[in-house]
Design a binder for these strands. Structure first.
Length: 334
DNA sequence: AACGGTGACAACCGCACAAAA
DNA sequence: TTTTTGTGCGGTTGTCACCGT
């Protein structure tokens, strides 16, 4: 898939409209529509200087005529420096398909397992690309899009997993491999070799698994396509230890796709800046040093922010400006 | 060159939930 | 306990670029 290189926001803000804030001061106008580069710049600088706080305050203090909600969305979906901003790799694509088969349209949960990707991005990718491809590739065997009646066992497994995952219960469910194999063969344009690629490159693609209570999608058993899931728990699995306990994150032949325990082990829970988790102060301030570093450096789009030691820098007017340290920006994580 | 269809993406909307007042 | 406020999330819509005719 080729992602358009055009930055929509940079095309101007002709589509942006100014509307009266409902219920508020009639003189206060809130802009809607596309964000202008100037607005992006304001928000970016404010966030780098002050960190995430109350979004309505962000909107006000940053001098933006936007509602806090809009600022939050813009930051999370577009401005966050840790966003990848690139085309989905085949590995990511497979992972999305896998996760969607388990989680359904829980885009935030899926996004939490694809660092650098937002729920909105994944949702759009799914709706615009994967969904259509799966539909066109198979109308009879697509387990990803099928109604529960198409395969009651799979549906039961999925439903059960949903509920159980939410309950953080310990349960393993093995999907019907034959069904999954057939479905994925039809559903995915990927081949087995692609699935065999490690998902651990750079340690970026998937969040680290929990040592315990980790859900594992184990593929490669029973001659089924390696990218297909045999779901089971690493521990206390109904099916023994088909899931392999390992610190690495792999998917494919000889490897497992680890899916951290839902709810409690999301990437953004562990690295909560700009995340989709709760708004609790603890989570918002729990940035780890490593993530902070990544946050400031792993920046495909905002290339002028760096971190040096504990300080975060931006290049402003040709000068290197320290805009804060990790504690002041995102808290000490304590 | 003009036009329409389609894909990709950004952003908005409405609802739900949790915490604070 | 109720209301308000802030936030998160999924669904949907709007906009623009690309492509084929």
């Amino acid at each position: 898939m080729m992602r358009k290189s055009v930055d929509v926001a940079s095309k101007g803000n002709s589509a942006a409209a100014t509307v009266a804030e409902s219920g508020g001061n009639s003189s206060a106008k809130l802009r809607k529509g596309l964000w202008s580069p100037e607005e992006d710049d304001k928000l970016m600088r404010y966030m780098l200087r002050n960190g995430q706080g109350c979004w309505s305050d962000v909107a006000r203090n940053a001098g933006l005529q936007r509602c806090g909600k809009s600022c939050r969305l813009r930051w999370i979906n577009y401005l966050r420096p840790d966003l990848k901003r690139g085309a989905f790799s085949p590995q990511e694509e497979d992972l999305i398909i896998h996760l969607h088969s388990i989680l359904g349209n829980r885009w935030s949960q899926i996004a939490a397992r694809l660092p650098g990707r937002t729920d909105n991005e994944i949702k759009n990718f799914w709706n615009s690309t994967i969904k259509k491809r799966l539909k066109s590739s198979s109308s009879s065997s697509s387990f990803l899009l099928a109604s529960p009646s198409c395969n009651s066992e799979l549906a039961e497994a999925r439903d059960a997993m949903r509920g159980l995952m939410h309950a953080n219960d310990i349960m393993g469910i093995r999907l019907n491999m034959a069904v999954v194999a057939a479905a994925t063969a039809a559903a995915s344009s990927s081949n087995a070799t692609r699935c065999s690629l490690s998902h651990n490159a750079g340690g970026r693609l998937a969040p680290p698994p929990l040592a315990e209570d980790t859900y594992s999608l184990n593929a490669g058993s029973f001659g089924a396509p390696s990218c297909l899931p045999q779901m089971g728990l690493v521990q206390d699995s109904f099916y023994g230890t088909h899931g392999v306990e390992d610190d690495s994150l792999n998917m494919g032949v000889g490897g497992d796709l680890f899916v951290p325990k839902l709810e409690s082990a999301s990437f953004e829970d562990q690295n909560p800046i700009g995340g989709h988790g709760t708004s609790s102060p603890d989570k918002n301030n729990a940035a780890s040093g490593s993530y902070y570093h990544q946050y400031c450096n792993n920046n495909d789009m905002i290339s002028n922010s760096t971190v040096e030691g504990t300080n975060c820098h931006i290049i402003e007017g040709g000068q290197d400006v320290v805009v804060g340290n990790k504690e002041s920006l995102w808290g000490s994580g304590e």
